[in-house]
Amino acid sequence: MSMTAYQWRRYTIRTAIYVALILLTVVFLTPVYLVVVTSLKDPAAINLATAWNTPETPYWQSFSEVLDAFGPRLQNSFALVIGATMLSSLLGSLNGYVFAKWRIPGERYLFPLMLFGMFIPYQAILIPLFDFMRSVNLYGGVIGLILIHTVYGLPITTLIFRNFYVDIPDEMLEAAAIDGADFFGIYQHVVFPLSIPGFVVVVIWQFTQIWNEFLFGVTMTNTDSQPITVGLAQLAGGEAVKWNLPMAGAIVAALPPLLVYIVLGRYFIRGLLAGSVKG
């Protein structure tokens, strides 16, 4: 059976699409290859000309050194991320519910004013923030950092939840209200059960944002409360850079958010449009 011209054309296009995708995959993964290879090399064996070669024998010691160097910072990051993500998601959910379904005085202005907070350059508020944190005795600890990330996370979480809740038909809320549900009752029985995908999206977003954050992490902490990104900067920042350590550190620091993405990636895509303000 011979192929028709149409089938040939289709076949060629399909092949071209797969070739393009595979090439792009290689391009996207090239840095990963270099990172992994470098992290597994003996520092003495690292030099520019042989950067792409695989190590003769894997040098796992880099990873144990990195874990030593990170020490309690991994714990700090987890405590920080879990605390701030939970708080900002819950508050954001509540705020989103109010903004989506309740008429609030000045709402027209309050909502955009709140959203604006997620776009500001944080350098602009660093010194006043520092003064404030100190005056309320929260400077330097994980708790203070949780507060900071919760507050600056509120605009985005509020937005995502509001956009989720806007799509819930008002009739469902009316029905619950007629059944006697009040503000919290509606939230508990109608809104919250429908917002699981919203929570997944928000949690993924907040988790990666807070895990990856550096500026607050480095300026608002004492040594015992630093997060992981600061640990990585320590590894990569010394004068005599041995590239195996920063590379191993980059892998360790990147792993938790990467795992979250790989496992829950489809929620990210499903909810992504909500993250770009679109009502």
Binding site: L24, T25, F28, L29, P31, L34, V35, T38, A51, T208, W211, N212, E213, F214, T229, L232, A233, A236, W243, P246, M247, G249, A250, A253, A254, P257, L258, V260, Y261, I262, G265, F268, I269
Partner: peptide, 20 residues
């Protein structure tokens, strides 16, 4: 997943990797 994964990285991580 492949094309999206760099989004999950910190700019500090990306910068360190690309400097190398």
């Amino acid at each position: 997943t492949i094309f999206l994964f760099p989004m999950a990285l910190s700019f500090v991580v990306t910068g360190t990797i690309w400097r190398w």
